[in-house]
Design a protein around this nucleic acid. Structure first.
Lengths: 203, 203, 203, 203
DNA sequence: CATGAATGAGGCTTCATTCAT
DNA sequence: CATGAATGAAGCCTCATTCAT
């Protein structure tokens, strides 16, 4: 069910895979610079040193290309969860908070990307994109709440929703109030997260 | 602030104002349906029963039109603050939380719009839009934190940042996990807000 | 239900009509030269001294353009029936045959056009075109058999089918055996037609 | 007659012949579905499980491919004459009519093919195709009129022209008035043919 | 004030054909 | 023999914008 055409099962000759990779990288860059609809296929082709016609040997559609770029991005978000999962339960809350804080401060927090808003805007109009987004979010929720559960945090699903809401709000905050970004994270978000996670009450 | 052309010196005739209003309404609707780059000037002209040429008598540019639509939207966000300001300090925290909860539940929370993500994406690329966004956010922060201060909430600026982060995260959450939206607000966000606002400690 | 867009009811400003006419003429010529799919919109635009973009103000689609050209052609076929209808019943068979023979010899027989085969080929794949074709044929059958009936020809519907079959076969014959075209008409088709029409038996 | 490339001197290896056959079959099918200009070489290659590059080892050109497909089709038309030729002169007219009627009713009458109109349209523009068409028609005329002569039909060439005209008109009739097709053949065409063939007068 | 005619560039996509492997 | 990578032109169509009326 891959978005990208061809994909002879098994084969996918290294060359083909490498080309596709190059295309996706170029597309990502162009989309980040000009938006999904501002970037032209021509510009993407040029960015990866390929003729337009050739690009279409690897990609079925502009839409499919957008979708695949989004998928890759979301996949990267997912991968960031892996480091959190490796934390030992026990003093886990502290460690978790520390790691999360660090992540956020390095601008790699769970939902941040240049394409973040582009993607969300697209999801409002393109049901396929919405579906992809929701599917990924579902898997991330599952994994994150499992981490919380292992750490003894009560109501892990609820806490996950809350924390994801805050994470999801950070990129917008950064755009609306850039100077404050760092401060708000260290001074406010981190303590709040600590409190959320260490709170043993039932709310 | 005169993105829009013509501003006849002194006052802009009622007729002119009414036309502009119609254009902006149509533009808003078209942009919401198809995105800033997906909607054509032609479609907007048709949507407000106007010829393309005539529309250009009122609007300098597509870009200016986008900017003005964004400005209007942000203005509406601002207006929603007004009702909060009318609350009496005293039992203000309770009232505030109640009002905020109500607002959110009616899908009119402070940052939610169909054009929300469209706008944020645009702000990433268009410095003028970014500036507008930041200017409005600054004024909203000021007013909101003033409300908090009047209610005796400590660290009002910090709390404002935190609450704005959460508000800003809600629309994204709604897109990523639609089924949960209502529940998370009533069960999680509202209690959290209450705790944030009634907390008298210094963090 | 016109194929061509715009057509503000009533108005259709003479100018607009004249432009459309020019477009259709150019299209007809280009299609005749290169076929429906061999002729490009660009070539048509150039042929009528218009920019491509402008042409699209008058025509919705290449498909719609093809359809309208076909409709016009079929309309002309229909018009040729009018002269036949003016014949006085009485010695009508003779006159009819004479007129038909004359028509054929001037290469304007009922189904002949450069676009004839192009149209038939298109009808095989495009149901809309097929429908148009069948609708026109129905009306022509009706009118032609009515002429026959007025002339006292028995089984007018059947004769109509037979004569239309022969007419429909002539253009193909002309392509397959060009040298013979004239001869076959005068020496063979005309006598056959005469016999078909004057035959009072029931077959 | 060597539209197709390669013709290894002497004989073309069985393998080569088989490949070519497969290509022509695929091409025929694709052309029938999408028309000569609508079908792409790529689609034909896919339809015969061959790579595009490989296909070009057997075929020089798209144009040559079209021409060869046409040639094959016309060849099949010719072959249908063979069964008519086997009829014994004597009661030949009856038998002939019967056979022809049967042929027509099975939609295999002498000029009917899905590619019929496509071919005729092409012949109007491509002189090479026109030439092929005329050459085949000449040979068919010769053979058919010979059959008539053997059966004692007077003016066999003239009758041939007439009958070929009717045959050539049938497929168009079928497109223009589909419901009537069967009826017109059995009720009208067959009797007419019988009369044409058994008529001993000089017209 | 108001229309919509007009443009030309640019976007997405497809295609016939060639060539390196 | 066989593949499919690669190209570049061309096709259809849309769009923001301007201008004559």
């Amino acid at each position: 069910m891959d978005q990208i055409q061809g994909d002879a099962p098994g084969k996918l000759s290294a060359k083909r895979a490498e080309r596709l990779e190059r295309i996706l990288n170029a597309a990502e860059q162009c989309f980040a610079e000009s938006g999904f609809h501002g970037a032209s296929i021509g510009s993407i082709a040029k960015a990866c040193g390929m003729s337009v016609g050739h690009l279409y040997h690897y990609v079925e559609n502009k839409e499919a290309l957008i979708e695949e770029v989004i998928r890759r991005e979301l996949g990267r978000h997912m991968q960031r969860l892996t480091e959190l999962e490796s934390a030992e339960p026990g003093d886990l809350v502290d460690e978790l908070v520390a790691k999360v804080a660090e992540t956020i401060l390095h601008e790699t927090d769970l939902f941040r990307t240049v394409l973040n808003f582009e993607t969300l805007a697209e999801a409002q109009r393109n049901p396929k994109v919405a579906e992809v987004l929701q599917e990924f979010d579902g898997r991330m929720r599952l994994r994150f709440s499992e981490i919380l559960r292992r750490s003894g945090v009560p109501h892990p699903e609820q806490k996950t929703e809350l924390i994801f809401t805050i994470f999801g709000g950070l990129p917008a905050r950064a755009l609306r109030h850039p100077e404050q970004e760092r401060t708000i994270i260290t001074d406010t978000i981190v303590p709040v997260m600590r409190r959320i996670l260490s709170d043993r009450t039932t709310d």
